[in-house]
Design a protein around this nucleic acid. Structure first.
Length: 453
RNA sequence: GGCAACGUGGCGGAAUGGUUACGCAGAGGAUUGCAAAUCCUUGUAUCCGAGUUCGAUUCUCGGCGUUGCCUCCA
């Protein structure tokens, strides 16, 4: 495809044409989960958004030209706290949550990233970067802690559009006796005996948050790379601090060229938060809803926009996919999607615009031509929809149905007898009862068929 | 207080300096015992005020409102 890709770059906050450093070797780093608790629907959004960006980049530059790195943060204060709360060991906790995370990724039809490095497997590199920062006089040690001295980095605040004085005046900054300045952030800190720890020049301890992304992006993508992604909330302080560390440690004038951040999900217009008690885990949906439905819901708004999660949204997406599966065909060989239909995705990942095009392609495919159905199915597949074949889609509904096939057939027989006797009151009652249980009756050409809603 | 984002029909949600996509819901019709499904037809929207302009929903400024971030966060 000749079309250029445009992305909104948080660094500067403008939509820009995407120009890779090396078009044969594109690097994308996305902040993955901190494995302290099962992933929720908010975590699902970047998973799907950046999965689609990965697909778009591969479409433009070739499958082998894109390296997608998504880390797993498996050392962090939240993990320590969660393991105490749940009364299981840190190792068991991080293993379990990582496993669940992978299940959720599959459920959402996300492709595997090229690599998925873990923080705990890269501690020595973190120690090395911390040493470099001390050597270069960007960091200082005090009382077994190592801090990054923010004021030494002149571009601090550029990504989040903050200036240092105001930040300090903001006064929510944690005051610590060990810090020279309140805005400084920790690179290394000591661990208590029961906390995870590694030997370091500053004693037994563990790395601060932020450091793992600086180290692992460098390991896999180099000092400078193309795209760094994550949720909006990571802009400050996480990504700001990553930039500071990385550029200072690497003596580099840039880190990632394009910063892409997705907006938040609200639950029925309320912020999703533990205090609200409205955290929806991805896993909670698995018993009722096909992952395809969640995926469509997650991309029904533009990635930068807030997305409200509610019953109505899910219902609409379920309905849409039910309809779309009517035009599903098995794809045998590669089918080209016309550029005019693909183009919204190239324009800052405009998924709602692309969905509108899918509706148009569906409309076209209804004419009955196999070719049109192939184009439609391929266009859906491109963003990870209709990836489940039609039988799986139907089987899923059957499995989750509260009424068995046998019961349904009995009811239909009963209803048809009533119809023969012109007892329409009874026949309509049976139909409504079935509908309540999610079964839709259709009388066509003298035959009654049924399907699950 | 500081920094941002957003405000489009009944709902969701794009785009655009000139006729405002698309989906859902609604209305009418064909069909049906009635429905469903399908097909056809169809109504409805750019927060307020000022400015720039031949023309503003779009650009600028000012309101009002909503939301996010400001060292836990996707």
């Amino acid at each position: 495809m000749n079309k250029d890709i445009f992305l909104t770059n948080s660094l500067g906050n403008k939509k820009e044409k995407f120009v890779p450093i090396d078009k044969n070797n594109i690097g994308m780093y996305v902040c993955g989960p901190t494995v302290y608790d099962d992933p929720h629907i908010g975590n699902a959004r970047p998973l799907v958004v950046f999965d689609i960006l990965y697909k778009v980049l591969k479409c433009k530059f070739g499958n082998k030209s894109v390296t997608y790195i998504r880390n797993i943060t498996d050392v962090d204060d939240k993990i320590i706290k969660s393991s105490l709360d749940k009364k299981i060991s840190i190792e068991d906790l991080t293993k379990m949550v990582t496993k669940n995370f992978h299940k959720d990724c599959n459920y959402l039809f996300c492709e595997k990233p090229t690599e998925e490095p873990k923080a705990t497997e890269n501690i020595s590199l973190m120690i090395k970067m911390t040493e470099d920062l001390i050597k270069k006089n960007y960091a200082y040690t005090n009382n077994n802690h190592v801090y990054f001295e923010v004021k030494k980095f002149k571009d601090y605040g550029k990504l989040s559009n903050k200036n240092l004085d105001e930040l300090i005046a903001g006064s929510r900054v944690e005051i610590s006796e060990n810090k020279k300045n309140p805005e400084d952030f920790v690179l290394w800190k000591p661990s208590k005996d029961n906390e995870p720890n590694w030997d370091s020049p500053w004693g037994k301890g563990r790395p601060g948050w932020h450091l793992e992304c600086s180290v692992m992006s460098k390991k896999y993508l180099g000092i400078k790379f193309d795209i760094h992604g994550g949720g909006r909330d990571l802009i400050f302080p996480h990504h700001e601090n990553e930039i500071a560390q990385s550029r200072c440690a690497n003596d580099s004038d840039t880190f990632a060229n394009y910063w892409v951040h997705n907006g938040f999900i609200t639950i029925s217009n309320e912020k999703m938060a533990k205090s609200q008690g409205n955290i929806l885990k991805i896993n909670d949906f698995k018993n009722k809803i096909n992952g395809q439905v969640l995926r469509l819901a997650l991309i029904s708004a533009h990635y930068k926009q807030p997305l409200d999660w509610n019953e109505n949204l899910i219902e609409q997406c379920q309905k849409t996919l039910n309809k779309w599966y009517e035009s599903y065909v098995q794809i045998e060989k590669k089918v080209l999607i016309p550029e005019e239909y693909l183009s919204p995705l190239f324009d800052d990942l405009n998924t709602p615009g692309y969905i509108a095009n899918l509706h148009k392609l569906y409309e076209k495919s209804q004419s009955g031509k196999t070719k049109d159905k192939e184009v439609f199915t391929s266009a859906c597949n491109f963003i990870g929809l209709l990836k489940d074949n039609k039988n799986n889609w139907l089987d899923f509904k059957k499995e989750k149905s509260i009424i068995s096939e046998q019961e349904i057939l009995l009811k239909i027989e009963e209803r048809n007898k009533a119809r023969e006797n012109k007892n329409y009151k009874l026949s309509d009652k049976i139909r409504d009862e079935l509908l309540d249980k999610g079964v839709l009756i259709e009388d066509k050409d003298g035959k009654t068929t049924w399907k699950l809603k």
